[in-house]
Amino acid sequence: MTETASAKRPWVAIVLSVVFPGLGHVYLREWLRTGLWLVLLFATAWLVIPPDLIPQETSYEAIMQASRNLPRDASFLILGLRVLNVIDAYVLARQTTRTDPVESGRQCPECGHDLSEADDDLTFCPWCATELESVEEAEADSRFKL
């Protein structure tokens, strides 16, 4: 069984995006979106943060003082972009989970879990308990649909 993007968990993408913008997209292997979010966030910060607020030294106290002096509009704009980044990573992870097929070929029609390693004589999905069609019934149905 090969691992697909359907194994990506939305909550991991959320946590990574909260830690650093674009990191959730890196987890999802969305390289273009990662770059676009980083460019958007850094360009916004460069445009809205006054140059006189940028500290000359890189001490903790200097950085904290600069962040306290940041204009309210700039803070809200950067926060809004961070929130949109987290939402985008979550939505993308959910879409990827729902749309990517399992490559093994046999999956539950209800929950989508991979059933290739389950017993062939199972009549239900071990994850969601949905009744499964037998292989013969599925083949017969597919012949009639043509």
Rank of each mutant, 00 (worst) to 15 (best):
Leu36Met: 14
Ile14Phe: 15
Leu41Ala: 10
Val26Ala: 12
Trp46Phe: 13
Phe42Trp: 12
Ala43Leu: 10
Thr34Asp: 00
Thr44Cys: 07
Val48Trp: 05
Trp37Thr: 12
Trp37Val: 15
Val19Lys: 10
Leu36Asp: 05
Gly22Tyr: 07
Ile14Asn: 08
His25Pro: 02
Ile54His: 09
Thr44Asp: 02
Gly22Ala: 06
Leu16Ile: 07
Val48Leu: 12
Thr44Trp: 11
Thr44Phe: 10
Ser17Met: 01
Phe20Arg: 07
Leu23Ser: 04
Ala45His: 05
Ile49Gln: 04
Leu28Ala: 12
Gly35Trp: 03
Val39Ile: 15
Gly24Trp: 00
Val26Asp: 00
Asp52Pro: 01
Pro51His: 13
Gly24Ile: 04
Val19Cys: 14
Ala43Trp: 11
Val15Glu: 08
Trp31Glu: 06
Leu47Arg: 08
Leu40Thr: 15
Leu32Phe: 06
Val26Tyr: 12
Pro51Val: 10
Ile54Leu: 13
Pro21His: 01
Trp31Val: 13
Arg33Val: 05
Phe42Gly: 09
Leu53Asn: 03
Ile14Cys: 12
Tyr27Trp: 01
Thr34Ala: 08
Leu40Gly: 12
Ala45Pro: 02
Leu16Cys: 09
Val15Thr: 15
Trp31Tyr: 13
Pro55Val: 10
Phe42Leu: 14
Arg29Trp: 07
Tyr27Ile: 14
Val12Tyr: 09
Ala45Gly: 15
Pro50Thr: 08
Val15Cys: 09
Val18Glu: 00
Leu53Met: 07
Pro50Asn: 04
Val12Arg: 03
Arg29Thr: 08
Trp46Val: 06
Gly22Arg: 01
Trp37Pro: 01
Trp37Asp: 02
Ile54Asn: 06
Val19Asn: 04
Phe20Lys: 07
His25Cys: 02
Phe20Asn: 06
Phe20His: 05
Arg33Gln: 14
Leu47Ile: 09
Gly24Ser: 04
Leu40Gln: 03
Thr44Glu: 06
Leu38Asn: 10
Leu53Cys: 03
Leu40Trp: 06
Tyr27Lys: 01
Val12Asn: 04
Ala45Asp: 12
Gly35Tyr: 00
Pro55Gly: 07
Glu30Phe: 05
Pro51Asn: 09
Phe42Cys: 07
Val18Thr: 10
Val12Ile: 15
Leu38Val: 14
Leu16Lys: 04
Ile14Gln: 06
Leu53Lys: 07
Trp46Thr: 12
Phe20Tyr: 13
Glu30Tyr: 09
Leu41Pro: 00
Val39Tyr: 02
Val12Trp: 13
Leu53Gly: 01
Leu53Gln: 08
Ile54Asp: 04
Ala45Arg: 09
Pro51Asp: 14
Ile54Ala: 09
Phe42Pro: 00
Leu16Asn: 08
Val18Trp: 11
Trp37Ile: 15
Ile54Met: 10
Leu38Arg: 02
His25Leu: 14
Leu36Pro: 02
Trp31Gln: 06
Leu32Ser: 11
